[in-house]
């Protein structure tokens, strides 16, 4: 084991605590179907005061829970299955679909990165905010690869998820966008899993299109962002 500063018992306790809190919130959310009771948000809100009160710094928490972190990689590989399922269904119009989603990815990365560099002037934060329209596991993997800050990415993804999922459908109705495919693809690419869950409740067709958008957008982002960020960066130095 690589645990130097912390003993194994503390480490197991912290991992167990994280698991228990998360699973309890997830269970309650499932049971009562409350979308705002986000297990990740509630777990973090509960864990941070606990860590601060017990003088556990982030480095030792991260080291203690490295088991959970290690599972992130195989879990991300598992997303290949929904990707496979969705590819079967977009055969007829894949060219237009990929072109539209890729343009969206380029647009959202460019404006998020530029606005953050202009207002906050920190590259790590700009990278994190550029990856907010991606499903969480892929967002975290890409942020770490580009040396951004993955905790900011995780939060940004959650804010993008809630704002777009709750207000997006009304906004689209207001600007006269009515087709299931347009509503599903746009809310799916902007608000990923949270958008997908909310749309699926009211209209399964929209929910299905949003799953297509969220998985394809994430793959497109993985190819686009390592090229786009080095192009944008010199503009702000």
């Amino acid at each position: 084991m690589l645990l130097e500063n912390i003993n194994v018992v503390d480490s197991l306790m912290l991992t167990l605590l994280t698991l228990v809190v998360y699973q309890s919130v997830a269970w309650v959310q499932q049971k009562w179907q409350l979308i705002w009771l986000n297990p990740m948000m509630i777990t973090i809100v509960a864990l941070i005061p606990y860590l601060l009160l017990n003088n556990i710094n982030y480095a030792s928490y991260r080291q203690s829970t490295q088991g959970l972190n290690a599972l992130l990689e195989p879990a991300t590989v598992a997303l290949g299955y929904p990707l496979y399922q969705q590819l079967k269904h977009i055969k007829r119009y894949w060219k237009q679909l990929i072109a539209i989603l890729a343009l969206g990815v380029v647009l959202v990365i460019t404006i998020s990165f530029s606005l953050t560099m202009l207002l906050i002037h920190q590259k790590e934060i700009a990278i994190a905010l550029s990856l907010k329209s991606v499903t969480t596991p892929i967002g975290i993997a890409l942020t770490e690869q580009l040396q951004g800050d993955s905790s900011i990415t995780a939060f940004s993804i959650m804010i993008a998820g809630f704002s777009g999922a709750l207000l997006g459908p009304s906004w689209l109705r207001f600007i006269n966008i009515k087709s299931d495919i347009a509503i599903g693809l746009s809310v799916g690419s902007g608000s990923h899993v949270i958008g997908s869950i909310i749309l699926s409740k009211n209209n399964p067709h929209q929910g299905a299109y949003s799953s297509v958008a969220l998985i394809i957008s994430a793959v497109l982002t993985a190819f686009i962002i390592p090229v786009l960020v080095p192009l944008l960066l010199p503009l702000f130095s």
């Binding site: 973090i44 860590l51 991260r62 959970l68 939060f155």
Partner: peptide, 11 residues
């Protein structure tokens, strides 16, 4: 639950 260790970094 695998996202929690990264997300707690906001601390």
């Amino acid at each position: 639950v695998c996202f929690i260790p990264a997300a707690v970094g906001v601390i």
